[in-house]
Design a protein around this nucleic acid. Structure first.
Length: 291
DNA sequence: AATGCGATCAACCGCTCCAGA
DNA sequence: CTCTGGAGCGGTTGATCGCAT
């Protein structure tokens, strides 16, 4: 497949009817953009013909949706976005387009690539099947707390324009403001046991946690309310998406998070990661998780 | 400088779904 | 009901880039 624009022969004497494949040129991009400006999106086969592009309608559609469309966001996924992907994938699996609907400006292709190159790679390294219960636990106990921490850090430094500071004062989620209980690092093999012990002896703490949608910088009217804490000291997010106006569906998202901020306040391990959360070496430390 | 290799991402393919004739 | 074309989805792959040797 995609054997480098194969229709263009070296002699330049390509067949006029031949369909071009492979990377798009600037001229093609301009032509497609102009055509869409003139006649709008949709009817891709027709558009491909009318535009003079030697591309299939399908190819035009993909190029527009994944690359040329003005609201397509470029650049690395933020911790907030990564967190949301983990959450939504745990609920919907490989429903990339559905997941992408909840990440404005991100395409299903981009999310799919992220999942395969980052998440699945890590899982493979740990010899964990991404469909397994083990993987679920890994995400819940290790990656999500880490991403939450990163999300908080980026929020408190006001680095993210999407963060709505008005609805989420920094002090509300600042780990430093919390008196930490006995520290338990998520990478500790006894992590869960210790947490359960904390709970049974009453030392398990909870505190006011911003709701995930707020943490992610979404306007609260995108979501319903429904934060709860269960008997094991885990948060349960339970919110439905508003229908219609935002394109969200009616389904409810349920996720549980352990109350981990205490140990995150004491361990500055997040700073050990540069831009890449998914540091393989650090991930290896979590091999103890597999028992 | 040349080469090899892994990571990333853009793009293609095959398939399904759906609406309209 | 069947057929057909458009649209969209998920899986896969080739090109490219950057880093290591």
């Amino acid at each position: 497949m995609m054997s480098s624009s194969k229709s263009v022969s070296s002699s330049g004497s390509e067949d006029d009817n031949e369909i071009r494949r492979g990377p798009w040129t600037l001229e093609e991009d301009n032509l497609l953009t102009q055509s869409i400006a003139n006649q709008g999106e949709g009817r891709w086969n027709l558009l491909a013909k009318c535009s003079g592009l030697k591309r299939t309608g399908k190819s035009c559609r993909l190029r527009w949706l994944n690359y040329l469309k003005p609201d397509v966001k470029r650049g690395n996924l933020t911790p907030q976005e990564q967190l949301l992907i983990l959450e939504l994938h745990s609920k919907w699996g490989n429903r990339w387009s559905k997941i992408a609907q909840h990440l404005p400006g991100r395409t299903d292709n981009e999310i799919k690539n992220y999942w395969r190159t980052k998440i699945q790679k890590q899982a493979r390294h740990l010899k964990i099947d991404t469909d397994s219960r083990e993987f679920e636990e890994l995400v819940r106990r290790f990656w999500i707390p880490r991403l939450l921490q990163k999300a908080r850090e980026s929020s408190s430094s006001s680095a993210l324009p999407i963060q709505n500071q008005a609805t989420m004062p920094v002090s509300q989620y600042s780990a430093a403001a919390i008196t930490p209980p006995p520290c338990v690092h998520p990478t500790c093999p006894n992590y869960l046991d210790q947490r359960l012990e904390q709970h049974s002896n009453g030392s398990c703490v909870s505190f006011s946690e911003p709701k995930l949608p707020q943490l992610l910088g979404y306007n609260s009217n995108h979501f319903g309310n429904g934060l709860d804490t269960d008997e094991f000291g885990t948060f349960t997010y339970d919110y439905g998406y508003h229908v219609n106006s935002n394109g969200y569906d009616n389904e409810t998202l349920n996720m549980e998070y352990p109350v981990d901020d205490c140990q995150m306040a004491r361990h500055n391990w997040v700073n050990d990661f540069a831009c890449d959360l998914w540091n393989m070496d650090e991930c290896c430390q979590f091999s103890n998780f597999k028992k």
